[in-house]
């Protein structure tokens, strides 16, 4: 066990965990933030996507200790303080961009990061930008539409 200090969803966290703990396991089991899902073992599916220091990463392929000192944002941390949804969450809802919901947290976090990088993406940009996230339910189209719509709704807001 070794100590680890970081910020998760704006809250300071200090914890002990084994060196072999993956960030996904740390979030789910130590912090009980179970919105981050694990859908594969090979860094393909993207259900575990979270944002570390502003960048989207696959939390199943990062040691928790590598996040020491970092700021981590998970699906639990992006809604507004009053509980209303983040524009990307809202757009996913309006556009029926989720069915079973399992890929959704990773998909939303990937989309948030994508829009930070590319505030005015095209349809093709979004499809390419989501290549690290798999969805088996929706056929992706409504996800793409949700991201394009949130780009519009966020325009100016986060400039």
């Amino acid at each position: 066990m070794a100590e680890l200090t970081l910020t998760v969803n704006g809250n300071p966290v200090r914890s002990d965990c084994a060196p072999g703990t993956l960030l996904s396991g740390f979030l789910r089991e130590t912090l009980h933030l179970t919105g981050t899902h694990v859908g594969c073992d090979t860094s393909q599916c993207g259900a575990c996507t979270v944002i570390v220091d502003g960048r989207s990463i696959k939390s199943c392929t990062m040691l928790a200790h590598e996040a020491d000192g970092a700021s981590v944002t998970t699906i639990e941390g992006i809604a507004n303080a009053d509980g209303t949804l983040h524009p990307v969450q809202q757009a996913f809802r309006t556009h029926h961009a989720l069915q079973c919901g399992f890929c959704t947290p990773g998909m939303v976090m990937a989309s948030v990061a994508l829009l930070a990088r590319q505030p005015e993406p095209t349809d093709a940009d979004v499809r390419h930008g989501l290549e690290g996230n798999m969805c088996r339910c929706t056929g992706y189209q409504n996800i793409v539409d949700a991201v394009l719509a949130s780009a519009k709704s966020m325009k100016g807001v986060q400039a």
Binding site: S43, S56, A110, G132
Partner: peptide, 9 residues
């Protein structure tokens, strides 16, 4: 290479 998340690490 890989995908955006892999490229970030």
């Amino acid at each position: 290479i890989g995908d955006p998340h892999v490229r970030n690490r």
